[in-house]
Design a protein around this nucleic acid. Structure first.
Lengths: 202, 202
DNA sequence: CTATTAAGCGGACAATTGTCCGCTTAGATT
DNA sequence: AATCTAAGCGGACAATTGTCCGCTTAATAG
């Protein structure tokens, strides 16, 4: 008895949902589209929708995958060829690219981080693949910097976590809405900050 | 025509709501109590409840006021008498106390930061009095440290903001749930981190 | 080709949050 | 004391999210 694969109709629905949701999100904005509306537009039932994606946050996480895959590929490639550059430069490049991605996909990231409905035991943001990846790479580079004495000793893991919590979509939204920052200004401030606190550069 | 004060019955209801909500929150946990239930327990209508507090986050913000008032009084008093101590020590003391408060009132802070229902243009967390206060005091101390050359130059305002985003209830919840950290371990890690990145101490 | 069965389907339902609006009433005015 | 009016009241309603369960069907086994 072989393992039952996903049924063909189910796979088609999965694609249909992603396509429909993506279109609706782009047209009306992620916030304004309800799960009911997605199901209706796709011509399927609520149950079918929720069977695939248990929340809008789930859907957004999935829709981010494409951009994210490109991000990791390009970054891995960069890190490969830039291995000889100072760790400091590579770290700042990583942050720079991450901030670009975050600002570009701000609505998606925000819905993932602060879902419409959320309860205490669902702080899933730090466990989505993009964040895990960011943290892992940060930690690796930080550890390398510590080992090569390019920065003073620190707890690479905790520092990586702290950077992930510091560079987050809600902070960006706050800076954009309350301070009228542009994406570039946000990036500049964060990079400056970490240049100064991590590397003591000026 | 004099300014109309809040009607007596309204003021009584306000107290009644706070008292009822507080009791229900303590008994059943903030998460498990619905606004409907609060209204019903208090013997008032939904409309009356929402007229006072437009969301559970609002209610929690109000309920935090008491603890927070005590916090600021004690802190201001400390800062007054500790003005001669190194800024570094005062900064770490501030963070230490803030983390204690946050851990103690974690559920409240979390509901304020990540309300049950939330939309993009409502990242209110950074604007509640406790956070504004924390940020202001951080900024003042950081600036003092910079001016007296106790730390290397940095953007006091942005650094203060970054610390507020780094020391936040969701990060605590993550560390508690995924890493099984205790409140004391959380505090230790954060203080270590900032000791190292801000002050280069060991 | 037929039978079997588990995965899939979908809309009705429950639970929440938050709004609305006609009725009531506290309290200032005269 | 009588009047007036804006603030207050409260429950019905709308909008969402998320669950449930009897019916359907794709895919495998014989």
């Amino acid at each position: 008895m072989q393992q039952r694969n996903e049924r063909r109709d189910a796979a088609e629905h999965r694609q249909l949902i992603l396509q429909t949701a993506s279109q609706l999100f782009v047209t009306h904005g992620v916030e304004s589209v309800s799960m009911h509306q997605i199901a209706k537009s796709a011509g399927i039932g609520q149950g079918t929708l929720y069977r695939r994606y248990s929340s809008k946050a789930d859907l957004c996480t999935e829709l981010l995958q494409d951009s994210f895959r490109r991000f990791t590929e390009e970054l891995d490639s960069y890190l490969m060829t830039a291995a000889h550059l100072p760790v400091q430069e590579r770290l700042l490049e990583l942050m720079s690219r991450w901030i670009d991605l975050s600002v570009e996909k701000l609505q998606w990231f925000h819905v993932i981080k602060a879902p419409t409905f959320c309860s205490v035991d669902e702080v899933k943001y730090y466990n989505i693949p993009p964040c895990l990846y960011l943290k892992a790479v940060l930690e690796r580079l930080l550890q390398e910097a510590v080992d090569s004495a390019e920065i003073r000793p620190l707890n690479a893991e905790f520092t990586a976590f702290n950077i992930v919590t510091g560079i987050n979509p809600e902070a960006f939204i706050h800076l954009i809405q309350e301070r009228n920052y542009s994406g570039d200004q946000i990036k500049k401030h964060f990079l400056d900050h970490y240049r100064r606190t991590l590397f003591a550069g000026d």
